[in-house]
Design a binder for these strands. Structure first.
Lengths: 227, 227
DNA sequence: TGAATAGTGTCTTTCAGACAATATGCC
DNA sequence: GGCATATTGTCTGAAAGACACTATTCA
């Protein structure tokens, strides 16, 4: 944007459309799920796609992603992380569309609200069993999955997939689902507690004919995804 | 891009301009430098800015970044990494401009070519002593610096800042400059050689009244930034 | 032989991973 | 008491970090 000859003018360039697409993940039924919406129009009418839409001229990219999430899935107050920007010239058959992909995690209890609101045709799909996706959304999803998994290897973000207070065994289960590998209970607890990000609530949860579990919560106020 | 009512049409949305901006880093004179260009036009005429420019309708984002690098700095065959997309509504006073930031590393010997070619007003600036930058380029640079440093902590990309063959002490010096902290010579050598990415060329370099150093090169063909 | 950089090994500490027995509550 | 899950510690191997002396070349 810098050493452009004086004759250059932004308005002279053919402008692309810019969209945001959001990878909204949750863990349900012991599996990682992603929210998809069924397209009601061409192109790709009837196919599943990531929620998203055009960025308006008065909003930031993140605001656009939050607005789309609200409109299409009824979700508010969620932490978003920008993933990557996809801009191959022909990724949209209609015209040049550049899309900025975001990723977000939804706590399990909130997933019920979604796809019940005025969401048109939104539904959770297990990532292990996906339909064909519109546009290059399969590539976007693949990229986001890789990022999600690598993040789980060195951070404690799994709490964002759980209710405010949870059992350590639930937290471990989330890690196992995302990473796709079983973890040793003692080593997991040693590690997650050594991060010093969790605190016991003092409460216990009884859910079966066995010893009740201590409940933990995340120490930080609000949702902090990067740690 | 998905559950848009049928009446929606990309062409109905006011389209933003989209640019790419590139953080081109090198190490010169024992300091990390970034390439800046002096703006020849409003807005911010006369101020320094990151090299970059508008994305054309027939090229990908990466192609646009490579083209701009070639036009503004005469550089080819360089590895680029997409950093982040900045899209605050008023980051450009003229109109809505969304910019996709890229990062690249230039080997020291190639830096001489730059800013000598037909580059308009391109110059290397030490990142520790920067002028005020146009637009939000200071924020983009801050973001890129953080990413660069965190990358150096767990990868071996420093070789991209050196000529094809180099002394281990030179490589160590690059790490020290980027990380801003001195490293132990024995531990550094142990670590970098244990990565198994370097091989001795068999040659030695004599440059002073002391024992000549073995030269090493990177094993992989081509430039691989992520490892 | 003095100056300057190259090159090398050990010890300690820390972290990750393997591994199994006891505790507590409900039925 | 039987069942189901909760809770806890030790040992081992690997990697990271602290640390100092010898080697080689030129002037």
């Amino acid at each position: 944007m810098s050493s452009i000859p004086p004759s250059y003018d932004p308005s002279k360039f053919e402008r692309p459309s810019v969209t945001v697409d959001i990878l909204l993940f949750t863990v349900k039924d012991d599996a990682l799920h992603v929210l998809l919406v069924e397209r009601g129009e061409e192109p790709f009418r009837g196919m599943w796609a990531l929620p998203g839409g055009f960025v308006r001229s008065d909003e930031s990219l993140e605001q656009a992603a939050l607005r789309e999430l609200c409109e299409e899935a009824g979700i508010k107050d969620i932490y978003l992380e920008q993933l990557y920007t996809f801009g191959e010239p022909n990724r949209d058959p209609r015209t040049r569309v550049i899309t900025v992909a975001y990723m977000a995690l939804v706590p399990l209890p909130d997933t019920a609200l979604i796809a019940s609101g005025d969401a048109l045709h939104a539904a959770w799909h297990p990532v292990a069993l996906l339909p064909n996706l519109a546009f290059d959304h399969a590539a976007i999803l693949a990229y986001g999955l890789e990022r999600l998994r690598s993040k789980f290897r060195y951070s404690s973000i799994a709490y964002a997939l759980l209710p405010e207070s949870f059992r350590l065994s639930e937290l471990q289960r989330v890690y196992e689902i995302i990473l796709g590998t079983p973890l040793d209970k003692r080593n997991f607890r040693k590690w997650i507690l050594s991060l010093n990000l969790l605190e016991a609530t003092g409460n216990r949860e009884q859910n079966g004919a066995h010893r009740p579990a201590r409940l933990y919560r995340y120490k930080q106020p609000g949702l902090v995804l990067f740690n």
